[in-house]
Design a protein around this nucleic acid. Sequence first.
DNA 1: TAGAAATGTGATAGCGCTATCAAACTTGAT
DNA 2: ATCAAGTTTGATAGCGCTATCACATTTCTA
Lengths: 343, 343
Amino acid sequence: MQEIKKRKTTGQITLFDVARYAGVGTMTVSRALRTPDRVSDKLRQKIQIAVDALGYKPNVAASLLASASANRVIAVITPKIYDHCAQLWLNSLQTHLAKEGYTTLLIESYHYYKLESQMLDALYSHNLEAILLFQVEDESFIKQILQSKIVPILNIGKDYDGLTNMNVGIDDSLAMYMLTEHVIKKGYQHIGLLCANQEYQIFQQRLHGWHKAMLAYHLPTHRVINAAKPANFSTGSELLPDMLLNWPELDALICTTDELACGVLYECQRRHIRVPYQLAVTGFGDNEFSQVSFPALTTVALPYKEIGEYSASLLLDNLKNKKVTHETDLSALAPVVRLRASV
Amino acid sequence: MQEIKKRKTTGQITLFDVARYAGVGTMTVSRALRTPDRVSDKLRQKIQIAVDALGYKPNVAASLLASASANRVIAVITPKIYDHCAQLWLNSLQTHLAKEGYTTLLIESYHYYKLESQMLDALYSHNLEAILLFQVEDESFIKQILQSKIVPILNIGKDYDGLTNMNVGIDDSLAMYMLTEHVIKKGYQHIGLLCANQEYQIFQQRLHGWHKAMLAYHLPTHRVINAAKPANFSTGSELLPDMLLNWPELDALICTTDELACGVLYECQRRHIRVPYQLAVTGFGDNEFSQVSFPALTTVALPYKEIGEYSASLLLDNLKNKKVTHETDLSALAPVVRLRASV
DNA sequence: TAGAAATGTGATAGCGCTATCAAACTTGAT
DNA sequence: ATCAAGTTTGATAGCGCTATCACATTTCTA
């Protein structure tokens, strides 16, 4: 039996207290809690009683330090949690990771502008097993994370030249190409693009997809408003007049988000513009309201749910040290155009 | 000088390595990093060079264990992060806490249904300083958290009989009362209520507020649809026909969320019902789209931004061990009715 | 210039836990 | 009954860090 000495302590109930109460060694208590099958039934029961009686809570910092084991915690960094895409993806990801016992720590990087290193320090203090970046565009920030490369990093979005350990690409450009192609094939000739949030690469990609499709079908690409405003409902309402003023011949308007498109639809109603007869309108993203709106919004859906699932499995495989080259049928991750009443 | 011995280590660069490289004691390195002003400039520079050269990253588990200090991390538990209210509140809260160097750990409790204790274990492993509950309704879950009462707990929402250490109430009932009163004063007589998500207390409170206002003005309270469906756009569109069928005399419809109301507006357009001339419609929450919609939605705004700010200051005061009874002008937290074109 | 006070630095002893290994106790085959 | 092999248990020695105190050094006061 281990020496029973008086220690000055933080007041917390420790393994030692439990061991003394149960009349066993600390190691046996530790085992009873971590690997119960390596302890006899009799002692295990005794120990359980002691744990309950004393209200013992393990000190995970000590456990981590002693075992140098990881924490089953992954961090997700994304600029804007409330984005519809982020919602779908996160929801799917978290569900899958929670099943495997992982806790997800969400960080909205927006709040840590100029506080990045502080935030990272706090992050690393959690003994993370991995970091996921979702549509993080700040390359210097990514590099800063990678510098202190102590855990695997999975990036969702544009691949920064293989900087990250793993990358799951999302092809916004392709999605917009497909959508534009559908509109073109419907016979529209004077197709404009309404792009907000132009400062973000992801919107540049959407613009690029439109541009490419227009060129491919020999259509003019000058009818573009590219604004540095939030891509929300009011911006849509606000910018429609400019579009109509500049290009009265417009017969279709492609918006880079469903919110913009929805704002445009409202403005059309205010101005008695009949959609799609006078003007066809599309969004991007297949948000919840796009199939309920009046008229229902033609849009393109990116498979964020599947991407979330794929991200989770890729990450879990990597953490389990299986092959990192996880071959999956990526066709399941292709964008889907939803043609509705507004085109 | 401290004995330089060979240790078996996890391979990580330790304080000891930095100390040896810089030719100082470990304690000096520790101080140079934690309390730089207690170390001479000369040694501090030397140590900084050693830290950079070796790429030293502190092991926070060890630091926590040795100092028994807290982590500047608070956890927020909420059933649904993507809720508009949660967004506003969280955004405001996080901004204020980030300024004070706190990192916010977001947990969507939905993902941990039946995994609560596992999730809590993971949570506690972070040496949290506090836990915030936002509109958590599962009382047994709250009790479970409180059982292991190791950190202050701040609850936002209904007060569970003083179970939590601190409580910031949000009066949904009052907000709905105010809204209903406005509608009544506009002269509407046949006022119905469309309530979804009836299983949640927060929606019961809204229903209650409507009921109370109707009684106060001697108006009938039977025109209610109380559905166990998600309070979203499509439910609004879907349930409007039932309302109209049951009560053709309806001249105003109050919806328990803006999403429901927006769905109702769309359905009105499909059915050529002129709002507000044939039917007035209101929402609840003042979501972004409610002022852009056509017609713009009359609704009531709860001051989640202010509540977030108040929560942050209350929590910070508590953590700093100032007076916990933080008196604030709570009138700033009162709901605000926004009368718009739809009523 | 001596002595007191303030400041800077390092050796030590844990924080609460687990890896490790040796000791004690089973079990089963001879 | 005996020994080999398996199983269960506990004492020990750290994990990497910081609180603490003692000692060394500097600065200030009389």
